[in-house]
Nucleic acid binder design. Structure first.
Length: 581
RNA sequence: GCCAGCGUAGCUCAGGGGUAGAGCAGCGGUUUCGUAAACCGCCGGUCGGGGGUUCGAAUCCCUUCGCUGGCUCCA
């Protein structure tokens, strides 16, 4: 069976499972009002308006009742009825009536299974017995129609598959994801912490996490310099007037922290770096010959995020963007965008991601700038993508109000999508801040401005990397690259010598001098996911060699220190994903 | 911010009205070991904070902070 067909079948099965769940809920809590219950990418949910909150025991009871319904194999039958008839059937179901009132067709379809009936477009499996294996996962609040002004409903999430084996492998995947959770690994591997005393969403980088971050930042800076960017530094606060001029004070206020008073002037923490880059640009007049100018900065910004959305490193209140702004002529736009795409692809590949998807977001309803300029910029972005041979999907109307954008999402080792590079054209700021250059005709012209980030933010990117690698960073990123393990005290002198030699060529080495057993030391190094364990005993000391154990289990014996050193140097230089010597 | 759940030692967790427990970690010893946990001992918590009910609260109630899963949003 082809993939698409199987996918559709699974959707129908899950949708039916959601109906069965609703039926079970109504049996147990007859006052339940039904909202909606679709299939989702990996399961299904149903939203209910219930007289009381659900708890874990309820989920068990609902599961049991669902099993009964499935066991009795009720046929699921479709009926087409007029809207009036439907209105009678659902007279006690206000949410269904609301949906009904918005359907334009004369006839609507309803699905029945036993005593249960639901307004539904379908399709469904033919009977409840066809639902192979299901599991209810959790209960969550959800606003009716996703609008926070509407009442909050209770949503039950579940998943279903044709076979028990598929369900179990899905649950195993969930468990794997939980094991790779960057918050868990961040603590276990001593990478970072967030403190209640300091405030939520504010991250402290521990030495090991800071090392990973520093390696990435150094790489980032080198790569940007190589590609014609100029690195800049700008302050963390600025007068609020700047943000009033930019329009952020009006459009973006919910994300800004309250101003602080400094000698009678109002200052805010900067929520973005672009305005400072514009100020730098504007310190002098620019000729068309100087463009493009590319200012890059690992700029730390602060945004107010509602407490409920904070999440580990991936949603925080203070973060460092790998930001850059390109000031160019419109005729340079395509080349510039192509350059950013090149850089983005290079970065994605270097960090070990192989699958990604590209989206081009076009003009939204509310927009700045003229139609022509939108048209031009959007087609320029499209041409840049075509020019690079990148296939992409269009996200209609999803552009920012100030210009169209390209978003790249990449998939991690578990197939989950993460927000990656974005490239945004901006018509708004150059106009508001009068950002111009002098053309070859001596006339002042508006610059084309591009905001772009490749990694997103250091915080979120590190979260992605931690989960992608499950904490087992490739050699070039690993906070500790080599753990030296002397077997007994008598080997410490040789161990120190080996350590010094590796350290002298820039390798990050730790020597485990503790009075512990070999097994214990290996175990610790394994748990810390150190790429190489160098084991030194009588054999090695006597022959001036090394025994190396990889965290993946392979072993090498009789290596010379110089060969090991040389090989590590190569692997690090290549930013290799492999550890094999 | 909203709904639900959860906060007990550095970590993982047990205990659910009668003066706080385990394992790991840490510390002190002993052990000097060949590829994922040596042995013995010790230290460690005003049970997130505040208020209340009670003779008595980690336990029940209220409130506040934080975390988790969602909703909304997003780098």
């Amino acid at each position: 069976m082809d993939q698409e067909n199987k996918e559709e079948k699974l959707q129908a099965l899950r949708h039916s499972a959601s109906h069965v769940m609703a039926q079970a809920v109504v049996r147990l809590l007859p006052e339940a009002k039904l909202a909606i219950g679709p299939a989702t990418e990996d399961g299904f949910y149903y939203d209910f308006d219930l007289p009381r909150p659900l708890n874990t025991e309820d989920l068990e009871a609902i599961s049991k009742e669902m099993a009964n319904i499935i066991a009795s194999d009720l046929p699921i039958v479709r009926e087409d009825v007029t809207k009036d008839e439907a209105a009678k059937i659902f007279k006690d179901q206000p949410y269904k009536l609301e949906i009904l009132s918005e359907i334009e067709d004369e006839k609507v379809s309803i699905y029945r299974q036993g005593e249960f009936v639901d307004l539904c477009r379908g399709p469904h499996v033919s009977s409840t017995g066809r639902i192979g294996a299901f599991k209810l996962l959790n209960v969550a609040g959800a606003y009716w129609r996703g609008d926070e002004h509407n009442p909050m409903l209770q949503r039950i999430y579940g998943t279903a598959f044709e076979t028990k084996e598929e369900l179990e492998s899905y649950l195993a995947k969930l468990e794997e994801a939980a094991n790779r959770d960057h918050r868990k690994l961040g603590r276990e591997l001593d990478l970072f912490s967030i403190h209640e005393e300091a405030g939520p969403g504010l991250v402290c980088w521990h030495p090991k996490g800071a090392t990973v971050r520093r390696v990435i930042e150094d790489f980032w800076k080198d790569e940007h310099t190589r590609r014609g960017y100029s690195l800049v530094y700008t302050p963390h606060i600025a007068k609020v007037d700047l943000w009033k001029t930019s329009g952020h004070w009006d459009f973006y206020r919910d994300y800004l922290y309250s101003p602080m008073d400094i000698e009678g002037q109002q200052y805010i923490l900067k929520p973005m770096n672009c305005l400072y880059h514009i100020l730098i640009y504007k310190t002098k007049l620019h000729s068309y010959r100087e463009l493009p100018i590319r200012f890059a900065e690992l700029g730390t910004v602060y945004r107010y995020e509602r407490s409920g959305v904070l999440h580990g490193l991936s949603r925080v209140r203070g973060f460092t963007q790998d930001d850059a702004h390109i000031f160019c002529r419109y005729d340079q736009l395509q080349t510039e965008v192509e350059g950013v795409l090149d850089l983005a692809m290079f970065m994605i590949a270097t960090f070990g991601f192989s699958n990604y998807q590209v989206f081009l977001s076009t003009r939204p309803e509310k927009y700045a700038g003229s139609l022509q300029i939108w048209e031009m910029a959007t087609s320029t972005l499209a041409e840049a993508l075509n020019g690079k041979g990148v296939s992409y999907r269009i996200d209609p109307g999803e552009g920012v109000f100030y210009g169209p954008k390209i978003d790249i999402k990449f998939e991690d080792a578990l197939g989950r999508a993460w927000q990656g590079p974005t490239i945004q054209v901006d018509f708004n700021l150059p106009q508001r801040f009068d950002v111009t250059y002098t053309g070859d005709d001596g006339q002042e012209k508006p610059v084309a401005m591009v905001h772009r980030t490749v990694l997103g933010s250091m915080e979120r990117f590190l979260a992605t990397l931690i989960e992608h690698y499950g904490g087992a960073f490739p050699l070039w990123l690993a906070p500790i690259q080599v753990e030296i393990i002397p077997i007994a005290e008598s080997h410490q002198e040789y161990a120190q010598k080996v350590k010094d030699e590796l350290v002298s060529c820039g390798i990050r080495v730790e020597l485990d001098n503790r009075s512990e057993t070999l097994n214990q030391k290996i175990r610790q190094a394994q748990l810390n996911k150190v790429p190489y364990m160098v084991i030194l005993g009588d054999r090695e000391g006597g022959s001036s060699t090394l025994s190396v154990r990889l965290r993946s289990g392979e072993q090498y014996h009789g290596l010379s220190v110089s060969d090991f050193k040389k090989r590590l140097g190569e692997l690090i230089l290549d930013r290799s994903q492999s550890l094999l010597l």
